[in-house]
Amino acid sequence: MPDPSTAEAAPPRYIEALNRALTDAMEADGAVTLMGVDIGAGGGAYGVTRGLYERFGAGRVLDTPIAEAGVLGAAVGAAMAGLRPVAEIMYVDFITVCLDPIVNQAAKLRYMTGGGVRVPIVFRTQSGAGRSGGAQHSQSLEGLLAHIPGLDVYCPADGRDAYDLTRAAIDADHPVCLIENRRLYGKRHPGWERDPLPPGKARVVRDGDDVTVVTWGRMVHETLDAVAAMEGGASVEVIDLRTLVPLDVETVRASVARTGRCLVVHEAVEQFGPGGEIVAQIAEHALFDLDGPVRRYGALASPVPYSPGLEAAMLPGSDGIAAAITAVLEH
């Protein structure tokens, strides 16, 4: 594997890090095979797979018809029979048309066969609300996937993790849902020279003593913006979970034990969202370290509206995060 942390002038964009990770993984292992709608000659709806079709050919970069249930089912079969498929679902919202191969097949086959098969498969997809994509192109469904035993769920927040978590997902011998954020695609993030972290290790993005904010994906950046804009000098620790499954409870617990206060922020709908699990973990492992209630801050329980003002009212943003941090601190 080429050393991705070779010093460079500017860090690669998030999308370039993804492309590089796919390229390197395909170079490293001839079994890695991409499949998805328009990922070939078209380079992908957002250009993540650009150049791979030309480089690796139609046999390893499979442009598929719009038949996600069939494609993912075939990917499951191919995985059991020796390939390492990376199957793209163009928007995470579209997993609803192909949940069976994800939930009832890929996630369960190793278990149901008593360890008899391996299903080394990556479901690559992306989310990213806030640009009027409408109710069927704007959801954050990582919690829905994380609920299914047998699926790992990775949500990279910057270029370093986009590379490392993609490589880790492809290397894993079990199914992984890799959920990119399209609003990060064009961004260059500092930290490219960081050492790679494995899945299941959270990262403390910002140290602090008064309150812990646990988040992931694009909300890491919204949280940092919120903290930067906050007055009053509260000392806020920000943790990027990086992967929901496996979940790094220990990093969260240790931080909360020190700060005594915690807010969980996510782009997904708050009601029955992944924040509930994290809050429950804190209640189970750090209740007596708390100085006040743990809070969640996510999207309102509504389909994502199209009109920009409504969408802004529905989604979490940096102003709301700042207010929520203040509320947690003041309780």
């Binding site: 009027s132 409408g134 109710a135 069927q136 192109h137 389909p303 199209y306 009109s307 409504l310």
Partner: peptide, 10 residues
Amino acid sequence: TCRGRGGSMH
């Protein structure tokens, strides 16, 4: 038509 909730695709 959809009070701004839907947009072009809906």
